[in-house]
């Protein structure tokens, strides 16, 4: 009950922040990009797909989620929740739920538009109309959880730290060694959505894991950061 109250309140606040809408507008870029390149014969998914997976979703989530969560700890407004009779962990879960609805809505739309752009400019693939949004959904939920956790753990510079972590897992690691892609959220998002991981069809010659494995990895990314943040926040002084 209290978790849902926190989630509802978080979502309401997010929808009233102009920055939320500005960041959500990033969701249109992959489809626009894909449509433009698709019309040139490059394939909407090979251009728009990696853009959505590896740039738009992480960037949007880091700014939309980690920032407000970190700010609530830094300016101590989180104390209004923490002095109510329920565990601090439920506040973090509620924040993740509320932010997830906002971020996922934007990425679902992004996925749907990308699928439409692909259908209009290339091969019509009805299955992709479901797979792409669902794959982006799973990746975004994991990204939100990570962003909430990092916002709570490092409230002074939450967006920078989140972007730094994502740059490492989504950029540096896969570039350094292909097998490190297994640690990338975007990689498992690409497995679930069927979108290419590499830009313009490059990278990833290793065989993709089963969808169940990717789902499990994203589930771990969803649960583990929140669990760690809950443990730390439970015993940490607020002021």
């Amino acid at each position: 009950m209290s978790t849902l109250t926190v989630a509802r309140t978080t979502l309401l606040r997010a929808t009233r922040r102009p920055s939320t809408w500005a960041l959500a507008a990033l969701a249109f870029f992959p489809a626009a990009f894909g449509a433009a390149f698709g019309a040139q014969g490059y394939g909407a998914l090979t251009t728009g797909g990696p853009l959505a997976l590896r740039l738009v979703a992480p960037l949007m989530t880091a700014a939309m989620v980690a920032g407000p969560v970190g700010e609530s700890f830094e300016n101590r407004t989180v104390v209004y929740w923490f002095t109510r009779p329920f565990p601090r962990a439920q506040v973090l879960v509620g924040e993740a739920l509320g932010h997830a609805v906002a971020a996922v809505s934007a990425m679902l739309l992004s996925g749907a538009l990308l699928a439409v752009a692909n259908a209009l400019t290339g091969t019509a693939d009805l299955a992709s109309l479901a797979r792409i949004p669902l794959g982006l959904f799973a990746e975004t939920v994991a990204l939100v959880s990570l962003a909430v956790a990092l916002g709570a753990l490092v409230p002074k510079h939450p967006v920078l730290v989140t972007l730094g972590v994502l740059l490492f897992t989504e950029g540096a690691l896969p570039t350094a060694w292909e097998k490190f892609s297994y640690l990338s959220l975007a990689y498992h998002g690409s497995v679930l959505s069927g979108l290419p991981f590499g830009f313009m069809g490059g990278e990833t010659v290793m065989s993709a894991p089963p969808a169940a494995v990717s789902l499990a990895v994203l589930a771990v990314y969803t649960v583990a950061p929140l669990a760690l943040a809950s443990l730390v926040v439970n015993d940490r002084d607020l002021g």
Partner: peptide, 16 residues
Amino acid sequence: ELTAREFVTALAEASG
């Protein structure tokens, strides 16, 4: 971002 009514109501719900 909330009105006073929304803010206090949310905290009332959080109080059980």
